[in-house]
Design a protein around this nucleic acid. Structure first.
Lengths: 339, 339
DNA sequence: ACTAAATACGGAAACGATTTCATTTTGTAT
DNA sequence: ATACAAAATGAAATCGTTTCCGTATTTAGT
């Protein structure tokens, strides 16, 4: 294949050190030889060996991204945002998907301890209760950034949306539309986003003087069929809700599936609002779905920018322990509005 | 952070060579010292430096995946499949998204020439006309696997679905439902999948004795708004089709959007069938969408398996020049059936 | 004209693993 | 006890860069 630095140097009758410096545009090398070197490098199609470089410089120009799901526009869009920024700075992205499995997440994170990546940006799995693996990583000084599903206890930078406010506003909207029995759908009680969204939901009910009915707070699994069954059951029961705040997009889709098997009508009998990533799909559902959408690409870009800062500026301090909020937007569609 | 081999060896009062061999389970090392070494390695949390290893062994345990879009269940699912197989064998995935931009694709592929990855699996961008960058890569002996959108001229292994047959059957289905003027929606004429799907469409029309109307064959862009406008225009024109075969999923969604702005009814006035990845969404659309779905996860798994074979078995021959077909499935829903 | 500093380059160490080759230790047969 | 093979370990080269350090040549200052 290609030549290496030594061969290139031999061809030029120069030492490897000089060639290396010429290619790295060092001040120690004269303009004339720089040009010669660059020309010959191009001619012989010289490509520096990334591993030799990484070994020497102790950095990989690689960022690891860990997400719970790939088939999910939310996370896909964040990764796009990260790539948009980091690629422009010559960084590569190792992308890992945990499939919402903590054990897998732990394995991946442990694998990353060896320095294969210069930093990690992660949104944790929904089963996460023990985050010792991430703690260890952070304690070792490994640059770590969270987004969306964060670990609040780990003192580093986190990007989230205004979960509390969005859930509050969303619930308020349902109440304004006349809902009295509002259900809350979630994936895992342990998730940071769940907790915040639940607080928002709860406070909105409180404010309206509505009693929270714990039997209307449902936790779902990764099994779509099973979730649809649970929802059907709920909708056929006595204490059927007249409104739903879904904290996860796919639970809204499961609800639509479940409703198809009942005689209920959205929005007449049941109104639903959901955190949801894909507005095209939301508008095409029948009825179109009222959504809370997060600027996911923006979140990805912010993660990327922060890390580029941290990794390229020398003597950069640790990633500050702060939670940055990028607000979501509520789009009211037919699923909450009676015509 | 962690210790390196030398430090570990010093701690054990052994030479680095012995420790290395012990950890790699060499026959030259006694069982007793192996145990001692392994124990101490665990105790000191020794993690071999991946770059030192890659440099020495000239392999990275990394596979690059290049896809045109991340916000697309089709590709996301393939990547999941690849990861499922390769992760189990200790491989890492560098995932690149070209955003359907050839220039970006070229840059990425050129970046990969330096050996950062041991192999590439790619589905090419829709604008691709010149594939010299991929050709060069392949000529240099770089393991290259295509899926879905392939380069037929490059002699390596490719995984596709039965595009011709699926399009043929899909079109036939429309004809059977009484369609006489069937449109074909595509992204780019240059794409391998477009050509095959178009052939299937064409042959089905031929077989039914229907004349192909070139004005019903529409090529779309990356701009969703613009696409919706084009479709609206078509639907409001004189030569409005009564059936559509969409070779790309998102064009079906755009069609649904466009139809909302007309007085037309699906399936009464217009029937539509589309290649489509997300069956949940397809079934929730109104009316539910008749789809051609590809077992994308399976395709990913096959790519993964093949590459693991190639990369782990020593003295493996080149990837055979063959195109492997994994058939799609047509699911008939309401968008093509009049009630 | 002589010294000091700046400029341009080469030699060799270093990064951290694997592996070839050499060497010591142990075991076995005579 | 001696010889020789087998087993277990160590020393050093190697992978391809970058960089520390040294040196020769040129430039500048007095």
């Amino acid at each position: 294949m290609g030549v290496n630095l030594k061969e290139l140097a031999a061809e030029l009758k120069l030492s490897p050190s000089t060639v290396s410096r010429a290619l790295n545009d060092s001040y120690e090398i004269s303009e004339a030889t720089k040009q010669k070197v660059i020309l010959m490098a191009k001619k012989l199609d010289y490509q520096p060996n990334p591993f030799a470089r990484s070994l020497r410089e102790n950095k990989s120009k690689t960022i690891a991204v860990v997400i719970p799901e790939r088939i999910n526009n939310y996370f896909a869009n964040v990764v796009d945002g990260i790539e948009e920024i980091t690629q422009a700075h010559g960084y590569h992205l190792l992308v890992y998907c945990t499939q919402e499995d903590v054990e897998r997440e732990k394995k991946i994170v442990n694998l990353l301890m060896n320095g294969r990546a210069d930093a990690i940006v992660i949104s944790v799995s929904s089963q996460l209760t023990d985050n010792s693996h991430l703690n260890l990583l952070h304690q070792r000084g490994f640059p770590l950034v969270f987004f969306d599903r964060i670990c609040t206890e780990i003192p580093t930078t986190k990007y989230i949306t205004n979960n509390y406010e969005s859930a509050f506003e969303g619930t308020k909207h349902l109440i304004q539309q006349g809902c009295k029995k509002i259900a809350f759908f979630m994936l895992s009680k342990e998730l940071s986003i769940t907790k915040e969204r639940y607080r928002g939901y709860k406070d909105a009910l409180d404010q309206a003087g509505i009693n929270l009915d714990p039997s209307l707070n449902l936790t779902f699994s990764q099994n779509e069929e099973q979730n649809i069954e649970s929802i059907k059951e709920l909708l056929n029961s006595e204490k059927r809700p007249d409104g739903i705040l879904s904290s996860i997009g796919k639970l809204a889709l499961s609800t639509y599936q479940a409703v198809k098997h009942t005689t209920l009508n959205i929005p007449r009998d049941l109104k639903i609002i959901s955190f949801f990533a894909d507005s095209t799909v939301a508008s095409l559902l029948n009825p179109s779905l009222t959504t809370i959408t997060t600027p996911t690409f923006k979140i990805g870009e912010e993660c990327g920018k922060l890390l580029i800062q941290k990794l390229t500026k020398p003597k950069q301090p640790d990633l500050p322990n702060q939670t940055l909020v990028i607000p979501s937007k509520i789009t009211i569609r037919s699923s909450t509005i009676e015509i």
